[in-house]
Amino acid sequence: MLLKRWIPLFILIFVGVMTLISWFVPHDPIGGLGDNFSQFFDIIASFAIILGAANLIKLQGSKIFRRKRNWQYSIVTIVGFIITAVVGINWHITMGVLPEGFNYIAGPHVNQATSPFYWIWWYIFTPLSATMYALLAFYVASASYRAFRARNLEATILLLAGIVVMLGRVPLGQMLTNWMPDAIGFLRIERVADWIYTYPNAAGQRAIMIGIALGVVSTSLRLILGIEKSFLGEE
């Protein structure tokens, strides 16, 4: 009970209160506490990566040994993990040059353009990440198709606003209403697009932001006061 409930709760309340106070009190030693706590967290999270790595190896390894469905993919995962870890941690060799041995000083070679780790990063990891990111373009198209169908009044307003904003951002759209005299210049499509952006859009965004801010205050208060204990697994 002490380890699972009271100590985590004490740490949470202490860190929460001190971080809040340090935001308003710049004087040493209180002023730097917020940053110090962040650094403590980073250090703990860095060590915790061992937990994650061990879990990954264990899970993928068991898939291979038990010949679970699609176990072949697990081989790729484990081989990729081991190679990247080895060349990233201590295998300080130059591409195209035979290794003369291990260099146990880890670190600088990670940023050297001739190191294997750098090669894996630029020629395997980055293109794969970019491919995933590029998929967004297709997903945005399919999601927009669904969102912009004029099923009801709200969806129709959304559709019209979307069309106006898109046309207002391209020269072709601006050309459509350039003929309008200055007296009714406020109806030009780029100005209507700007208006939508500046007023209804900003108002909606701010309403959401105010709600989020209040939600954060309320949740933080529940945590600091020890009322919210669901993060400990309690209801």
Binding site: K4, I44, A45, A48, I50, L51, G52, N55, G233, E234
Partner: peptide, 16 residues
């Protein structure tokens, strides 16, 4: 996607 989240989520789910 984070080791600490894994450790924490395990505790929460186990308790549930």
């Amino acid at each position: 996607s984070r080791s600490l989240v894994m450790a924490h989520a395990r505790e929460v789910v186990k308790e549930s």
